[in-house]
């Protein structure tokens, strides 16, 4: 932003204002840092696969940068919080491309199976791993239907202040919880996709009928991947 202020400083400067209008239709919810999150909101993502380009990797790069997920040259053990998935219909050969990440399930199998309760679902719908109580048993990775989780197989260095990560724990997409709590109302992937001009990823509050994400889902419909499992995912897809 101008004046050398980061967006976060700008927001903090704006005080504890409830909602801030930056531009018409774009609201910023500056969460009161003292208040616990509640289930009044449910954060989620909407992906329009028609807008997602097969050769574009912007969301993945942005996520890797935001959380400093490094490529250690061992693709089988390197962490991936978000990946581009190519899906081809053998009948006719229609191919779609989409970002795949933790679906922030309302009934998350990873949380059900975690022996210590380290995997948990925040009131606002974000599924996280409390890495202080994760013992690294990897049962959640066995249980997740979307292969959304990665185990950290080695010592890490140079972690960023907003993305603590380390050896022996399991991690996955946090829905950029540090951004959400700071009231940025977006995620690194959604931002990057937007910047690249594709606008295939939309972040928003699924509980708020007036939010952009809710409106679009209402108007055009959206699908859950593996809806048969009844997990009520927080990440929805259009034009699958």
């Amino acid at each position: 932003m101008s004046l050398g202020l980061t967006r976060r400083e700008f927001l903090q400067g704006a005080g504890a204002a409830g909602a801030l209008t930056l531009a018409p239709g774009v609201f910023l919810y500056a969460k009161d840092p003292e208040a616990p999150v509640t289930d009044a909101v449910r954060w989620g993502l909407l992906v329009d696969t028609r807008l997602c380009q097969e050769d574009c990797n912007a969301c993945v790069d942005a996520c890797n940068e935001e959380h400093n997920l490094q490529d250690l040259g061992r693709p089988e053990t390197d962490a991936q919080w978000i990946r581009k998935l190519t899906v081809r219909d053998p009948l006719g050969g229609r191919t779609i491309s989409l970002p795949m990440m933790c679906q922030h399930c309302e009934n998350p199998p990873c949380v059900d199976v975690c022996p210590t309760g380290a995997s948990f679902r925040r009131e606002d719908g974000i599924v996280l791993v409390d890495k202080h109580t994760c013992i690294g048993c990897r049962y959640c990775m066995m249980a997740c239907p979307y292969k959304a989780r990665s185990f950290i197989h080695e010592n890490l260095t140079e972690q960023l202040p907003d993305a603590p990560r380390g050896k022996g724990c399991v991690e996955s997409c946090t829905l950029c919880v540090h951004k959400v709590d700071a009231g940025e109302n977006t995620t690194a992937c959604a931002e990057a996709c937007h910047k690249d001009g594709h606008q295939a990823i939309l972040f928003g509050d699924l509980n708020d009928p007036d939010s952009e994400i809710s409106k679009r889902i209402r108007e055009f419909g959206a699908t859950q991947i593996r809806a048969d499992l009844g997990l009520n995912t927080g990440v929805r897809y259009q034009n699958l």
């Binding site: 840092p33 616990p36 999150v37 009131e123 919880v177």
Partner: peptide
């Protein structure tokens, strides 16, 4: 503070490691 922040999203800075 750690448990408050991780589980409840309480981001007060007074007692945070950061």
């Amino acid at each position: 503070q750690r448990d408050e922040t991780v589980h409840k999203g309480i981001r007060t800075t007074r007692h945070s490691l950061k």
